[in-house]
Design a protein around this nucleic acid. Sequence first.
DNA 1: GTGCGCCAAATTGTCAACAATTTGGTCAAC
DNA 2: GTTGACCAAATTGTTGACAATTTGGCGCAC
Lengths: 223, 223
Amino acid sequence: MSDSRRPSTADADVTARLREAITRGQLSPNERLIEADLAEHFAVNRASIRMALAMLDQDGLVVRLPNRGARVRAVSDEEAIEIAETRLAIEVMVARQAALRGDDAGRTRLRAIEKDMRRAVTENDAAHYSQCNAALHRELQRMAGNATANRILSTLKSHLVRLQYRVILLPGRPRKSLAEHRAIVAAVCAGDGDAAERAMREHMISFTRLLKQAIGAARLGGF
Amino acid sequence: MSDSRRPSTADADVTARLREAITRGQLSPNERLIEADLAEHFAVNRASIRMALAMLDQDGLVVRLPNRGARVRAVSDEEAIEIAETRLAIEVMVARQAALRGDDAGRTRLRAIEKDMRRAVTENDAAHYSQCNAALHRELQRMAGNATANRILSTLKSHLVRLQYRVILLPGRPRKSLAEHRAIVAAVCAGDGDAAERAMREHMISFTRLLKQAIGAARLGGF
DNA sequence: GTGCGCCAAATTGTCAACAATTTGGTCAAC
DNA sequence: GTTGACCAAATTGTTGACAATTTGGCGCAC
């Protein structure tokens, strides 16, 4: 659903593809991004690549040094924690706003996602659980209707994707996470902003703590 | 201090200048940004302008439509409120982190700024007060040491500059704001994260409320 | 007079060539 | 053997020309 006759430039297209290649880990952190090579790989000219690199630099996914080219930005461990903390602050606000401003359709969808989530846990389907998790947060964002927060969250998430799968795969995580999610859904559906905020804070603190553990473990075991 | 022999490209330079022109209001909201004109005005070639527009688009300061050019993005009233709410969430976190992680030098500077601020209020110097205000928030950000949050805050602020001066100039605002700032400084210097968070929340809620008032007033009186 | 198609001007998108800079290696001098 | 200058290759930065698209106006039919 992206190659129809809708007006779109090569630039925007290649930017999206390059962004995905980075977030999906097909390009390693600190890997050099050589304009000519990328231009050939994506079958566009260098100007488009240049544009894409400039935008991804602004996004924080790429670092560019004058006359010295671009690299995939490596998020350090400290940075990953910073990002998680900032994400926490915004997700908490989003949960509150979703509780206060959400509509009936949203609440219905929220309950459906929760149900689906329960099934994923009983069936031990980690992949599906991860999808439900994303869907739930997405629905909360939609209900909150704060486009600014949504934009920021999506860029923050794009910086963490590489790391967060470690957390999801931790033993016992889905069961714990499920309970937290149910508390969030209950509070939001009840229209209780304070409770939603508390529940989301609990959830994100728990996530952040595990992220720190995962990072610490990787630091010891990785090299 | 920008034309020395430090390596810098025309692109980065013109991006900063264009960004400033937009935030300072020298370019009106919705104004068309024609590449050739800008290139002539800034004495660079179109490619640099193109790059700058792409980055500012990513920043949210400019909107670009394929084949139809770029315009200065107009932040709607609803959006301004969204931005203020999101900023609140992050500033609150920054205040907490500043309280927990701040160093002695930072605390000293904070007290100095507060003192300066008091003087600005007694002397009714709104411009100087505004500077102190910026300095205080900047110092808190430095103390918190959360680069991610800092980056986000600076873009959020750049979207609000046009509006916030209305709030500062409201009668009685500096005196009220001063009391709020003193509470923040006290809590942060005491290393009390909870209190710092509360104080900053109070302050930002008060700011957001006034922003809404200012927006409402402008909507009635403006046209 | 109103609507419709068409053309020209303005503007953005794409491209390739050229200039400037960095990088890595070689060779000579010490 | 090490240091330093210098050169060549690789890469990025800049420029101008050309192609594609949109926009606004003009004339024509009705």
